[in-house]
């Protein structure tokens, strides 16, 4: 469970999050949706203990978030940053060396699933394959929470589809909570349990997506257009 209580984050005079409170439940897939600069990434980084609130409290499973939360959270960064001398296998070894919950067997399966060559240098990989590898090292961790920041950004439809399938195949649905921040809704429309709409640092609404379809006859995109 992830909870924000009256969380405000300021960067200088800019307010990234404005007195935000919400709770995310265990075992669900959340879409954190909003335009660029809405506060999605800041929120995810706060859950991951990479950014701290100016005021208010962020807690994960009842504990106030600090740097040590990394043990319970797998975080996929939106950045395409990598050590160019590394091979795919080096990247996996390195990721495994940084955490205690790395599942080698799962990593191996995922590499095969994503059709990556373990011996290939990262600088020789396409952007799409680097995105796949990032997902491999994130999903190979057995953490109760997975945070994915813009996993689809700038990727072609084939890569997007393999990421969705990778998630559906390897998430432990009963036990893992997944939060996906994105402004590309199409890809995850069918994947989500709940949507969180965020704009200008305010949470506008949290809704169950099937309920939106059932009671309002709205797709997520139609709903977002209505509320923003």
């Amino acid at each position: 469970m992830i909870s924000f209580e009256h969380v405000t984050k300021k960067y200088g005079r800019e307010t990234a999050l404005n007195d935000v409170s919400f709770t995310l439940e265990k075992g669900k897939i959340y879409g954190f949706l909003g335009p660029n600069g809405s506060g999605k990434s800041t929120s995810l980084k706060m859950m991951a203990g990479l950014v701290f609130p100016t005021s208010g409290t962020v807690s994960v499973n009842g504990k106030k978030v600090d740097r040590k939360i990394a043990a319970e959270i797998a975080y996929l960064s939106e950045l395409d940053f990598y050590y160019s001398a590394f091979t795919v296998q080096d990247m996996i070894n390195f990721s495994a060396s940084q955490v205690s919950d790395f599942d080698w067997k799962k990593a191996e399966e995922l590499v095969a699933f994503m059709q990556l060559d373990p011996n290939k240098k990262l600088k020789q990989l396409s952007k799409g394959n680097r995105a796949r590898l990032k997902l491999v090292v994130t999903l190979a961790r057995n953490t109760p929470i997975l945070l994915l920041d813009e996993p689809f950004s700038g990727l072609d439809p084939m890569v997007r589809e393999s990421i969705v399938k990778g998630l559906l195949s390897y998430i432990d649905f009963a036990n893992q909570t997944v939060v996906i921040a994105t402004h590309e809704i199409d890809e995850i429309e069918t994947l989500l349990d709940e949507v969180i709409a965020i704009q200008n640092g305010d949470i506008w609404a949290i809704e169950n997506v099937e309920e939106l379809r059932e009671t309002k006859g709205l797709s997520v995109i139609e709903w977002m257009k209505q509320i923003f």
Binding site: E189, R213, E222
Partner: peptide
């Protein structure tokens, strides 16, 4: 799928 109708249905 049609995104505006319940997918389970």
């Amino acid at each position: 799928f049609q995104a505006s109708k319940p997918i389970y249905w």
